[in-house]
Every structure is written in structure tokens, then in C-alpha cells.
Design a protein around this nucleic acid. Sequence first.
DNA 1: GCCTACACATAGACTGGCTACATGTAGCGA
DNA 2: TCGCTACATGTAGCCAGTCTATGTGTAGGC
Lengths: 105, 105
Amino acid sequence: MKADTLRGHLDALLLAVLDGRKLHGYAIIEALQLRSDGALDLPTGTVYPALRRLERAGWLASEWDVVSGRKRRTYRLTRSGEQALAAERTEWRQFTTVIGGVLGA
Amino acid sequence: MKADTLRGHLDALLLAVLDGRKLHGYAIIEALQLRSDGALDLPTGTVYPALRRLERAGWLASEWDVVSGRKRRTYRLTRSGEQALAAERTEWRQFTTVIGGVLGA
DNA sequence: GCCTACACATAGACTGGCTACATGTAGCGA
DNA sequence: TCGCTACATGTAGCCAGTCTATGTGTAGGC
């Protein structure tokens, strides 16, 4: 998959993978790999800044855990994060309809 | 639709709209509006440079027409442009499967 | 004569994801 | 016990591609 195609959809992916569960950054990357059959292999330099951006936006909340001596910053969706996810899903449907309509015709 | 979501898919749109017909730049913009029910309203500053980029890549060929005193640069798909369009369509299907799979779950 | 639609084009800004780098722990095998 | 790999977080800077703003010029209607 071309690298740039992700642009504008990263937020949706991160919110979706945190829907209903708490994960730390590294686990988020693995979860996305898993859910996409390996197609999505996001570099840490993409994910970590994005998580902080989403936290600043109020869509995610984080807290530090220490699991077997390792520090982990665990993220979860906030209420407005859930709303944002719903909005992103709606936008995704519109987006695929529009582009798919042009490509498919 | 958020502006940035287009990124990485513009080439596919331009190739698709030129599939099987010749159009000049301005008409391409109108054709995309039409096919997307007004959702896609690309500025000329986006389309014209993109067309030249695709021509440099060998996917489009252009020639100057003069219609009722107006100069028009008319674009058409080259052979390798057709192949590129097919590849873009395949990539689009993969892309929507991957992202949709993560978002939908 | 003026305004709008048509038509092409470029310079520069902006933005967001990527590359590369930096740091450190846990656990395993040699 | 030494080194390697997997785990885990983070930042600085680059770069490509899209958008904004601007410029030029014609045709046709009012």
C-alpha cells in the first residue's frame, strides 16, 4: 500500500482500535497489524506523536502503568473520543462512496 | 469531506475520469463534480499541477486545441496510463478493505 | 463597457506522516 | 556474563502533495 494514502485516516484507525479497550502504544501498533492481516505496519514515529495529538484534542486519555518493570503509557477513549470515532466512521463511508463512485464508473 | 483525505488518491481520480475519453483541465474538474454529486470540488491549483505531474510520469498525453478562440490543453490516457489506472483500482480495493476492516470491526 | 464564466498556470505555504535517531528494560541463549 | 532480540517510548527534521492566493487572457451576455 502506498504510504501517503493513509493520510487523513490515521486518527480514525487509532480511535477504532481503542474502541472498548485500553492499550499502550506498542500494543496499538500490534493490534493494527493483526486486524489488517499485516497490511498496516505503522512506524513508532507515526503512532506516538499521533497519540499525543489525539490526547491534546481531548479524544484520548492516558495513564502510566508499570508492568514487570516496564513503563507503559496506556490510552483509552474519552467520551468525546467516542463521538469523534462515530464521526470518523461516517466520514469514512462518505469518502469511500465518493471516491469509489468515481473509480468504479 | 476533510480536505486531506484525498491525498494519495488524486492520481486515481484523474486517471479514472479520463478513462475512455479526452478532456481538458477545466472539464476534468467539472466531470469530477458531476460524478461525485458535488462532493469533489477540486481547485485549479490542485488539478493543473497534478495533470502535468501525471504527464511527466508518462500516464497522460496532452495536446493543444483551440475551440472558439479559446486554448485548451486536452488530456488523454496513454497505454501505461491505462495500466496505472488498473493498478490504482486494485490498490483502492485493498485500501478500503484494510481500513474498512479496522474501522468496521 | 462591465461582469461572469471559461481556461490555464505558478509560487509559496502548510501539514501530516515518515525516516532516522536516541534511550532504556527484560529475558534468553551461548 | 555478554550480547542479542523483543519490548517500549519519544523527538527532530525531512519531504511530498495538496491548497491558497495570485496572475493572465478570451467569449458572451446584459
